[in-house]
Design a binder for these strands. Structure first.
Length: 390
DNA sequence: AAGCCGGGGGA
DNA sequence: TCCCCAGGCTT
């Protein structure tokens, strides 16, 4: 294996020297060869070293496909032929030209960036990746693309397309959004940079990800990396890159009262909108506080006493087994308390409260987990009525 | 109707 | 510093 000399590229983060074992000149050679033979060479922002033209294209191409950008790019340059024209224009004019491209923060940043380059760099974009990345709307990857195309600087890009190409080529089976994984990808991106031909290589990586190594149904048969693609060799193309792990649905807690008296159970009509809209349910104990660990502190006698005050005088309470109900978007942990009144006040009044006949629970319009709980309480084995300790 | 995405900005 | 979201688009 041939040893390579390489000095850290200008925009590289300090201490991020690419490991030698990641270096592989055959990778960039394959990409460059493919790009020169099959890549795009006549896009309006190619074949120029004008950083203004390159920068504008890179910003427009963020989250937007080439076909959509072409028309906007031409019109934008007609209206703002130079960086100074753009910097001097009212932001409203910039927005007007951007109108329809979407993601309008890009346009505001574009305008701010133009003004800063004029003010701080006398209208000439800096060459150094880190200086470029300090400008509004330009991050590490876009900075690398600009300086590579405008100055031929060896700088690594790492956008979504490149992450996909790397994940498949090298069989990286970890989520690229994770910090450590992304850092590793950046090290690899730096290590794979060619000594010569950074423009073809950078363009080639972008084109590869955009045209062959697409997210779904990639065209592996035409890929210059097929012979060395780990994902292809192990039949994992469709599984890489690893998709974003869906975040655990949030967990919510509710304390509910099972208030039984004279063969009746107290229910409450739920609001039409929201969860269990329009159904009856158990009254909830509000004002419950989440403990540090996300669990509900158990309700105490005083809190329950307050909660039931409008219905009567609390005699006793019993903590029932908690229920977990899983919705599509969150988990609800229900802590039910069975509560007995010493003296029942008849006027439950407003707020949709209703004393519901215990024998008719099975027909009540209740959410499934609540109905299940109440049916179990009403007597396990059908001996229902007689054993109901109402 | 869910995933994706470079960069900005809030925690 | 880390994490989450934007806003339009694709699948």
């Amino acid at each position: 294996m041939k040893r390579q000399q390489h000095s850290p590229s200008p925009g590289m983060v300090p201490g991020a020297a690419p490991e030698e074992d990641l270096i592989d000149p055959s990778f960039s050679a394959a990409v460059i060869g493919w790009q020169q033979q099959h890549g795009r060479h006549v896009l309006p922002w190619q074949n120029t070293r004008d950083a203004y033209l390159i920068w504008l294209s890179e910003i427009m191409l963020q989250q937007t496909q080439v076909a959509a950008v072409l028309g906007y790019y031409a019109r934008f340059l007609e209206r703002f032929p130079t960086l100074r024209d753009l910097a001097a224009a009212p932001v409203e004019d910039v927005m007007a030209q951007w109108s329809g491209l979407g993601y309008y923060t890009r346009a505001r940043n574009l305008h701010k960036c133009a003004q800063r380059v004029v003010a701080e760099y006398d209208g000439v974009f800096p060459v150094e990746q880190a200086l470029l990345a300090d400008l509004p709307g330009i991050g590490r990857s876009t900075a690398a693309a600009i300086t590579a195309f405008a100055n031929g600087t060896r700088a690594a890009i790492l956008d979504g397309n490149v992450k996909r190409v790397f994940a498949r080529s090298f069989g990286i089976a970890a989520y690229p959004g994770e910090k450590k994984v992304e850092e590793a990808l950046w090290r690899r991106a730096e290590a794979l940079l060619p000594e010569q031909g950074i423009e073809s290589y950078t363009q080639g990586l972008m084109d590869l990800g955009a045209t062959l190594c697409t997210r779904s149904s990639p065209d592996c048969g035409r890929c210059p990396l097929q012979a060395r693609c780990v994902a292809l060799a192990t039949d994992r193309v469709k599984d890489l890159p690893v998709r974003k792990p869906k975040k655990a649905s949030p967990e919510k807690h509710a304390t509910m009262l099972v208030l039984m008296d004279r063969g009746q159970v107290l229910l409450q009509q739920r609001p039409d909108s929201g969860i269990w809209g329009g159904l009856l349910s158990l009254p909830e104990l509000d004002g419950h506080t989440l403990a540090e660990d996300g669990n509900i502190a158990p309700a105490d006698h005083a809190a329950l006493s307050m909660a039931v005050a409008r219905f009567g005088e609390l005699e006793s309470h019993e903590r029932l087994s908690p229920i977990t109900h899983v919705f599509t978007h969150y988990k609800l942990h229900i802590a039910p308390y069975r509560v007995t009144l010493a003296r029942r006040l008849d006027a439950v009044g407003e707020a949709g409260y209703v004393w519901y006949d215990g024998a008719r629970i099975a027909e009540a319009p209740l959410p499934a987990p609540i109905k299940k709980l109440l049916l179990e309480l009403c007597g396990d084995a059908g001996a229902a009525q007689s054993r109901m300790a109402f």
